[in-house]
Structure formats: C-alpha cells, structure tokens
Amino acid sequence: MDVFMKGLSKAKEGVVAAAEKTKQGVAEAAGKTKEGVLYVGSKTKEGVVHGVATVAEKTKEQVTNVGGAVVTGVTAVAQKTVEGAGSIAAATGFVKKDQLGKNEEGAPQEGILEDMPVDPDNEAYEMPSEEGYQDYEPEA
C-alpha cells in the first residue's frame, strides 16, 4: 500500500510541476504579447503594419512553449490582441483601416495563427491545408 501511495504522490508532483510550467509559459506569452502591443503603439504610420505582424510573430513563438489545451486559448487571445492593436492603430490615425491585415508588401496577414497546427491532446499534428499553395516548377 505504501508503494501505491508513494507512486500516487510522485504522479501528483509531476502534474503540479507540469501545471506550473504551463502557467509560466502562458505568463511569458502574455508578456511578449504586451511587449508587441507597446511596440505597435510606438510606431509611426509606416511601421504600424509591420508592428502588428511582430506582435503576432512574438506571440506565436511563445505559444510553442505552452502545451496542451492552453495553446488553443493563448492563440485565440493573441489573435484578438493583434486585431485590437490594429483597431487602436486605425482609431489613433497611425494607419488607414484599409491597410490593416496586410503586410508591407500588401499581402493579407489573416491566418497567421489560424494555420498553425495545434492539437490540445498532444496526440497528432496535421499540416495546414494546401489550398493556398501553388506547385513550383523550376525553369529549365
């Protein structure tokens, strides 16, 4: 019985440690998101679009440190934060509304985080759909 109880105690310690790591990862992701939003706020009209992409990228980098179902929630929060940063930029006159959601080359930025393969159960990952990809044929 002692062996059984000791095993359960060790398992509990492992769960607590994993929860603490997840909590730490979420806190880091939130900190990076805040950094990115402050970065966007300090940019001029020309830099705002690039700044919004930076927020998304920093958040995406930190999301990889967070495991399990938390990833889905962090990704949703990050996307809403990026959308909010863009709205703030438009409201303050840093950028025109028609410039939001495009990178410096004018290509749409939507789907940055949505296409990231995420499995809350950590069982399997699927690649994003290939609808947006084109076949590449090298020139002879």
Rank of each mutant, 00 (worst) to 15 (best):
K102L: 10
V15H: 01
A30H: 02
T59S: 05
E13D: 08
L113A: 12
A76D: 03
G106R: 06
K6A: 06
A53S: 08
A69W: 11
L100E: 08
E46S: 13
G31F: 15
K97G: 12
D119G: 09
H50Y: 10
V37W: 15
E35Q: 05
F94Y: 06
T72F: 14
L8E: 00
A27S: 05
G132D: 14
E20C: 10
M127D: 05
G7A: 04
G14N: 07
E110A: 10
T92P: 03
M116Y: 09
V55N: 00
A85Y: 14
G47V: 11
G84T: 15
A56M: 13
T22K: 00
A17T: 10
G111M: 15
E35T: 11
K21C: 03
G36W: 13
L8P: 00
D135P: 04
G7P: 01
G36V: 09
P128W: 08
A140S: 09
G93F: 02
E28T: 09
G36I: 15
A56L: 11
K10S: 04
P120G: 10
M1R: 00
V16Q: 04
A17P: 00
A91S: 04
T75E: 03
V52E: 00
V70L: 14
T81W: 04
G84Y: 13
Y133H: 12
M127S: 05
Q62C: 11
V74Y: 14
A27D: 01
V37E: 00
M127G: 04
Q62S: 12
G14T: 15
K6Y: 02
V40H: 02
A27W: 10
K12G: 02
K80W: 15
D135C: 06
P108W: 10
K32F: 11
K96V: 12
Q62K: 07
G31R: 09
G73P: 02
N122T: 09
V55T: 02
T22L: 05
E123L: 10
H50W: 12
F94S: 06
K43A: 08
D115L: 05
E137P: 04
P138T: 07
A107Y: 05
V40K: 01
Y136K: 09
T59K: 01
M127N: 10
K34I: 06
S129L: 06
H50K: 11
T33I: 03
V71T: 05
E131C: 10
K80E: 02
A19N: 01
A140R: 11
D121Y: 13
E139V: 11
L8K: 00
G25R: 14
A85T: 05
K23F: 15
I112L: 05
K58W: 11
A89I: 13
P138D: 07
I88T: 03
V49Y: 13
A78W: 15
A17Q: 10
S87R: 03
K21M: 13
E110F: 12
S42N: 14
P108T: 14
H50F: 13
P138E: 04
M116C: 08
D2W: 02
P117A: 05
E130I: 07
G31K: 12
V26D: 00
I88S: 02
A53E: 07
E61C: 06
F4C: 01
L113Q: 13
E139R: 09
L100M: 06
T22E: 00
V48M: 15
G14K: 12
G25K: 15
E137D: 06
V74R: 01
V77R: 03
M1E: 00
K43R: 08
A76C: 10
G86A: 09
E139H: 08
T81A: 12
Y133R: 02
V48D: 00
M116G: 03
G73T: 14
Q62W: 06
E114N: 11
S87T: 09
A91N: 06
T64H: 11
E35R: 08
D115C: 06
V55Y: 14
